[in-house]
């Protein structure tokens, strides 16, 4: 039931969809067994609607895609990483309220 504005990314297309993106991308690293990931899902959905065209909101399942989380040293989920021009602008670990994510997004949009 997640928003259709959210893009799904994988190890295979991470470079193309995230690092080479024209606009900033917020990636939500998650897994099905993670309660807090589920907890922030509605917030991520809302952000995808609200930031359409300004920031891409993406999700990556860490179970199916182990390489990318490893590259960014992720050992906790949910982790949200905000990328701009291929660089990490901000990294948020754990379930947080919407305002914390909006504060991060305000740096790029």
């Amino acid at each position: 039931m997640s928003s259709d504005k959210i893009i799904q990314v994988s190890d295979a297309d991470f470079d193309e969809k995230v690092l080479k993106s024209d606009i900033p991308v917020l990636v939500d690293f998650w897994a099905a067994w993670c309660g807090p990931c589920r907890a922030i899902a509605p917030v991520i959905d809302q952000l995808a609607e609200e930031y359409e065209g300004k920031v891409k909101i993406a999700k990556m399942n860490v179970d199916e895609n182990p390489a990318t989380p490893g590259k960014f040293g992720i050992r906790a989920i949910p982790t949200l990483i905000l990328f701009k021009d291929g660089n990490v602008v901000e990294q948020i670990t754990g379930a947080v309220g919407k305002t914390v994510i909006e504060n991060a997004l305000s740096k790029v949009a």
Binding site: A31, W33, C34, G35, P36, C37, D63, G73, I74, R75, A76, I77, P78, T79, Q91, T93, G94
Partner: peptide, 17 residues
């Protein structure tokens, strides 16, 4: 090191270890 080995949620992060 929170999120880089420090965790408060075993069900979330256990599988990384």
């Amino acid at each position: 090191l929170t999120g880089r080995g420090v965790s408060y949620c075993a069900t979330c992060d256990g599988p990384f270890f």
